[in-house]
Amino acid sequence: MDRVLITLHGRIVEPTVEEIMEEYDVQPDQIDLEYGVQMIDPAAGDYVILVDEDVALRIGRDQVGASGPYADVRIEPFGPPES
């Protein structure tokens, strides 16, 4: 299953992946552990994780301050164009 992004609001300051998994009831195989937790807006206390889409839908629906899922889009160089 493709993974998607979900934004969480800082109920924990600078959380670890383990804390996120416990807080939001996420299993290890449902989250990208290597990706971890990325703080996207320190002033607002918002961070992002990479999880399975169904998990993102559940968290986004049930948790206050969470939003998503967001697309994890493929990107490519705008190098010398191809014909």
Partner: peptide
């Protein structure tokens, strides 16, 4: 010097988690 080439790479139109036209997407933020 990079980006996405086609709309089909993104979530469908009107999906709230779309990237290409959504300033709430975490990367745009």
């Amino acid at each position: 010097s990079w980006g996405m080439f086609h709309e089909s790479w993104d979530f469908p139109r009107n999906h709230p988690g779309r990237y290409m036209d959504n300033n709430r997407h975490p990367f745009n933020r």
